[in-house]
């Protein structure tokens, strides 16, 4: 067998990124070896792209020993779906796309049910369905501890009960880099190889490793409308204009990617990776600000996690 070398001619990573990469690879291998049915949650965003890249490195020269699951709410940007399909084809991945059939049947939308219930049904419940259907006992996710205050104490192996609930009082201590992967039947873990990465690390790594991203991350003239202080992408016929709203064209990019009506863009002129990083390094607004779900109520992320959200 000929071993492919992907890094010919590429300068080596700096020691900081190398250490983060090594740690993530270690976690991937450990979970893959200890659990019977691992799966990777793939959301198409920048963190997922980094996660996938690290997984490919961890198992090289072999293929990924697990499938990917994408929870498709039906409200993702078309650019995201196109990008996903390209990535799957290029790496020969086994991808399972899942949409909550109950939500589809009941026509659950952010507008009809409100963002909190919509998120619960189309994301949280959908994720549980997908995990149950595959009887997965470990799911990789791209969450980082620096993302949000309630994640600061999250473990690398985050334990979930048989109904996927997360109990902050019942998480195992983690010492050194020795992970306890023993669980009872029905229980599962969410494993977070990017726990110790910051947003800047993610961007620097994407740059150093030349990881491809959905073009939505780069500024372009886009049709947007302003709602609740957020710049929302316009153009989807299902998004009706409210009185007083109008569609404008502006140079915007997105810092995180989710469902169109819940994802706010930022005004920006950064059209390249270097420019995005330059903006980031002087930015004073954290990335989750662009997400409507975090602003619903205090402690909202923690609440969602207890209910089974990633």
């Amino acid at each position: 067998m000929n071993v492919i070398e992907h890094g010919r001619g590429k300068p080596p990573l700096d020691p900081h990124l190398k250490a983060l990469e090594n740690e993530a690879i270690h976690i991937f291998r450990e979970v893959a070896a200890e659990f019977e049915r691992p799966v990777m949650l793939y959301s198409i965003g920048k963190d997922s792209s980094v996660l996938l890249h690290l997984a490919l490195k961890a198992f090289h020269p072999g293929k990924l020993p697990f499938p990917l699951v994408h929870i498709d709410t039906g409200w993702k940007f078309p650019e995201m779906i196109a990008f996903r399909d390209q990535v799957v084809a290029r790496h020969g991945l086994d991808l399972i796309a899942h949409t909550n059939p109950d939500g589809l049947r009941d026509n659950v939308t952010p507008f009809s049910h409100g963002s909190a219930r919509y998120t619960d049904i189309m994301k949280t419940q959908a994720l549980k369905q997908a995990l149950d259907m595959g009887r997965y006992d470990a799911a990789f996710g791209g969450a980082r501890r620096d993302e949000e205050a309630s994640r600061a104490k999250e473990r690398i192996y985050s334990f979930r009960t048989s109904d996927h609930a997360w109990d902050p009082r019942n998480q195992r201590p983690e010492l050194w880099s020795i992970y306890n992967g023993m669980i009872h039947p029905g229980e599962s873990v969410r494993a977070f190889p990017l726990s110790n990465w910051t947003e800047v690390d993610i961007w620097r790594y994407i740059q150093a490793e030349k990881i491809e991203l959905v073009p939505l991350y780069f500024a372009e003239r886009r049709k947007v409308l302003e709602r609740d202080g957020m710049l929302i992408a316009a153009g989807d016929p299902r998004i009706a204009l409210l009185p007083g709203e109008q569609v404008r064209e502006e140079m915007v990019r997105f810092r995180t990617l989710g469902c169109i009506p819940l994802t706010g863009g930022v005004r920006s002129t950064a059209t390249t990776l270097d420019e995005v990083i330059a903006e980031l390094e002087i930015a004073t607004v954290s990335e989750r600000q662009g997400r409507a779900i975090d602003r619903d109520q205090a402690g909202s992320m923690e609440k969602k996690k207890r209910e089974g959200y990633f």
Binding site: A149, P168, A298, G299, E302
Partner: peptide, 13 residues
């Protein structure tokens, strides 16, 4: 970080 902890005023872990 955690709501539960804020309510109880204790720091766990």
């Amino acid at each position: 970080g955690l709501q539960a902890e804020r309510e109880q005023g204790i720091t766990i872990d």
